[in-house]
Amino acid sequence: MLESMRRGSSTCVFREMPVIVSAAAVCGPKEGKGPLGPGFDLIYKDTLAGENSWEKAESRMARQAVEIALAKASLSNNDVDFLFAGDLLNQITASGFMGRELNIPFLGIYGACSTMIEGMGLAAALVAGGFARRAVAAASSHHDTAERQYRYPTEFGYQRAPTSQWTVTGAGAAVLANEGSGPRIESFTAGRIQDYGIIDPNDMGSAMAPAFVDTLCRHLEDMSRGPQDYDLVLSGDLGRIGSTVARHLLKEKGIDLTGVHEDSGLLVYEMTPEICSGASGCGCIATVFAAKVWKELSAGKLKRVLLIATGALHSPTTCQQNESIPSVAHAVSVLGV
């Protein structure tokens, strides 16, 4: 019988840790001007990225993130056994349309803003299990495609709620391999869906905070660790409000994140009033990881990082029907070089 790679109630710990040999991030103009600007591999001057629709622009950014990541590792599409990708559009079309151009076995996934980490966890499992030599995880989002799907037409003049978040226009991709050098994925904790009765789609941080707390606690328990065992606990897009709520909930459980926690939603933009509670979207942690964290792990500046991406699993229809917002959070721990 195969020796199990499970530890505790819900964490996979990989015996042969998959190596993240490469990562790349592509973004739009607003993100390019943000604090992460220099870390991006490609910055578009406008949100259409040379296409004639925002949907195509998002798909293009996703494809380019994958292509650039492969080029950086001197790999071609044929070297990749699986591509995990997802986005926020209905039927994850940005990813499907990207897959059409790439000719890599494609597995579309949806975890809302947790998609990137879900993809990295699944890709790591396939690589660590010997089912793939190389696998790519990618995720994308686009401010304008998200606005028109979830909220109002982009030119409609209304005041954004202070609890709302700004969807990142950008895509990130990570290439995982069973050999090579780079940061290594140590473990993967898949999240359980949490729903604490938040019905306001403009307050996703609050809706997602309990999912973050649940996954973090289970991961720490399974690994017999505390937050201080990590150089960085990076959440997906809790934003300002979600982060505060999450830290409060954790403090009640006796877990103190002071000094180790950062939220991707607070790293992408200068926090002007327009950004409200922070950045969000599948592209949020995907770009922060590829443009910043992966580089710091590769340079040895970070030794052990826990990435926990949260996703709000609602749709405009469920919100109009007054359903509360179920949320999920997936965690992956990564070891630096």
Partner: peptide
């Protein structure tokens, strides 16, 4: 508990409200 009970949800909504930024009513007016 994956889906909170009505009471838990009410308590959580109350808690979260405390963390919301105050509405800038005067400024907006």
């Amino acid at each position: 508990m994956a889906k909170a009970t009505v009471r838990e949800a009410e308590a959580y909504n109350m808690l979260v409200k405390g963390f919301h930024p105050p509405r800038q009513v005067a400024r907006n007016f």
